[in-house]
């Protein structure tokens, strides 16, 4: 591969670990290469922004009006996310390892229904593929974990009810946010990257699934029956949307 091809693959997160390590080492030493990397990275951002802008141009109302009328469907969210809103880099969570013992993601100022999601994402920034590199628990242990967190948020969670294609169940943990129980069910995908399904009994009003992109994570959030939900992962948005569809239908 030429330098440009390798740099493009690196920026697109498509380089194998060995090649990535070699190129990263070269970048550390080579200022011209770094400049080229930066130029290509910016060009990718411009491309992504331009496609976002094109999405905004879509004449959705006109197209929707042309759809054949059937039985009224629930209001559908517009599935879109914005590459341009990706944070410039990692926001390292303020949740330091020593604080893990008490597992309470509390916020002092400006607590709102939204902040629990921000707290989850801040914490998720600390995750790496190593975080969940242990084998999936056996069914009996998984059932106990899920029953414990399910009990807190008032749902009957079982290994079957949280299972989904392509993801390996890893753990279910009880958190609390603003004194409300928050369940975090963690999976890993084929590459070992964490995907989280969070449930909190926050008493929020119903809200239709809404995709979003924060800190490089794709998320889908919704609320129903006095609980709020969020699927989070460094995944293509459509995968997270599909997961959210599946879970929203079950719970």
């Amino acid at each position: 591969m030429t330098d440009d091809e390798e740099l493009i693959a690196l920026i697109d997160n498509e380089l194998e670990p060995e090649a990535r390590a070699r190129l990263t080492a070269r970048l550390a030493e080579d200022e011209a290469l770094r400049a080229r990397f930066e130029a290509l990275r910016q060009s990718r951002d411009r491309l992504a922004s331009a496609f976002d802008a094109l999405l905004d141009e879509a004449p959705v109302e006109r197209l929707a009006a042309a759809l054949p009328k059937t039985a009224p469907a629930p209001p559908a969210p517009r599935a879109r996310f914005r590459w341009a809103e990706l944070a410039a880099g990692f926001v390292v969570g303020v949740l330091v390892a020593g604080a893990l013992a008490w597992f309470t993601l509390g916020r002092v100022e400006g607590e709102s229904e939204e902040d629990w999601r921000a707290a989850v994402i801040e914490y998720a920034n600390l995750y790496t593929p190593d975080t969940f590199a242990f084998p999936s628990p056996d069914e009996a242990l998984a059932a106990r974990q899920l029953q414990a967190v399910g009990g807190k948020v008032g749902l009957d969670l079982t290994p079957q009810s949280v299972a989904t294609q392509g993801l390996a169940y890893k753990s279910a943990i009880n958190f609390a946010f603003a004194d409300k129980p928050l369940a975090e069910i963690a999976y890993t995908d084929e590459k070992g990257a964490p995907v989280l399904f969070c449930i909190t009994a926050d008493g929020a009003g119903d809200a239709a699934p809404r995709p979003d992109k924060r800190d490089g994570f794709s998320t889908v959030s919704w609320s129903r029956g006095g609980r709020s939900y969020m699927v989070v992962g460094r995944q293509p948005e459509d995968r997270v949307v599909a997961l959210a569809q599946t879970f929203a239908a079950r719970f």
Binding site: L54, V60, L63, L67, A73
Partner: peptide, 10 residues
């Protein structure tokens, strides 16, 4: 279909 109209159009 409604949810994906914009992306289909793009």
């Amino acid at each position: 279909l409604e949810a994906h109209l914009a992306r289909l159009w793009r």
